[in-house]
Design a protein around this nucleic acid. Sequence first.
DNA 1: TCTGGGGTCCTAGGACCC
DNA 2: TCTGGGGTCCTAGGACCC
Length: 422
Amino acid sequence: MTTFALVDCNSFYASCERVFRPDLKDRPVVVLSNNDGCIVARSKEVKALGIKMGVPIFKVAEQLRRHNVAIFSSNYALYGDLSARVMQTLESLAPSVEVYSIDEAFLDLTGVEAVEPLDLFGQRIQYTIEQDIGIPVCVGIGPTKTLAKLANYAAKKYTKTGGVVDLTQVKRQQKLLALTPVHEVWGVGRRLSKKLEAIGIQTALQLMNANPKTIRQQFSVVLERTIRELNGESCLDMEAVAPTKQQIICSRSFGEKVTEKQKMREAVSNYVARAAEKLRGEQQYAKALTVFIRTSPYVPNSPHYANSAGTTFSVPIHDTRDMIRAALRLLDHIWRDGFRYAKAGVMLFDFYDRGVYQIDLFRGSSVRSDSRAYMAVIDRINQSGQGHVFFAAQGIQKGWAMKRNYLSPAYTTRWCDIPRVR
DNA sequence: TCTGGGGTCCTAGGACCC
DNA sequence: TCTGGGGTCCTAGGACCC
C-alpha cells in the first residue's frame, strides 16, 4: 500500500509578500500577473470579498481600493527563492519529495504510518514550514496522488480540519467525494466536467463509481486513470528526479504596444537570450526554434494579426548569438507594418544532451568552438547578482518592457534589498 | 486606457513505407 | 477492370495543470 501527501502553500505569492512585511498580516493582499494585468494570487481576505482568480485588475480596481487591499506586481525572484527553501525543508522531513510546482510538492509517505500517525506527521510538516520559512501550508494525505490532491482541497476548504486531512480510510474518502463537485478532481477541467455533467456525473463520488472501461471509450485513457486513482488504485508514481524539459518558452506581453520593427527585434532578442539561458541551465542543446508575434485579441475593431515561424538548426545549439540571428531572420518573414503588437515569444524544442547528436559528415560542424566557454562566462556574470551583460540586439531603452508598478524588493536575492534589523 | 506565462499528455489524421 | 493490411512518424489541436 502506498501513501502520498500533497503539501500546498496557501495563497503562495501573497504569503511570500507577507513574509517580510508583518504589517500586512491581517490586510488583504493580491499579486498581479506579469505586466500587472490579472490577479494571480489572493490572500484569504480577498477570496472572501468574492474577487476571482484571473480577473483583470481594471475590473476590480475600485473594489480593491475600497477595501484597502495591498497590491503587488509578480516578484518571481522572491517566490522562486522562498519556494526552494520550502522544498528543502520538506526534503529534510520526508523520505521522498517530488516538486510538482512552485508551491506544491508530493511526498511519498509509504511506511510512515508504522512510526507516526499520519495526521500528526502532517501537522508537524505544517508547523515546521510555518516556523522556518513563514509560509502557511495545507497537507492532504491519501493512498493515491489524486486522493491526496482531494484531501488537500478539503484541508483548504474546511477550516475546522486545521489544514491537515488524512484520507487513507475508505469511509472518509466516500464521505468527502460525495460532497465534492466533479470539477474539483485533479485532471477534470471545465470542458470535461461539462461533458460529465451531461451524462449525469456531478460529484467526485459518481465519477469514482463510473465504469472505467466505458469512460475510456467515451473520453480517454487519462480519465480512466483518474477513476482508478479515486478508487485507491495508484496509477501515478512519484517522480523524484525532475524529467528533462521538452520545450522552453519565453514570451511576454508588452508594457506598451509595439509598432516599430526595431523595438520588436529588441524584444525578440531578449526572449531568445532568456530562453537560451534556461536551455543551458538544463544542460541541453536545441535543434528547433520558433518565433511568434501577435496583436491583442481583446481590442475590438482593430486589425488583428498573429503569425509564427520556425526553423531547425543543422546541429543542436545553445549559443545565444546563433539563436538571435536565426530568430531575427524568422521575424523578417512574419513582421507586417501597421499593426499594434501586444505580445511576442520564442520557443525552443527538440533537445539533445551535449555530444549526443550525430554530426553530418559532409556538411561538417558549423558549431562555434568558443561557444561553451563564452556562454558560461555570460551566465556566470548574469547569475552572480553583481552585473549584467547582454547582446546589443537586445537594446537598451526597453520601452516595451512589462509593467511592474507594484514591485516588492528582492528581499532574499539582492544584496541591497536585504532587510535590515535595527 | 487596462486582459499572464509556462508547461504536459493524448488523439486523430495524413504521409509514407513495405 | 479489379486495388490490402499493417506499421511508423509527424503535426495540429484539444484537454489539462499551476
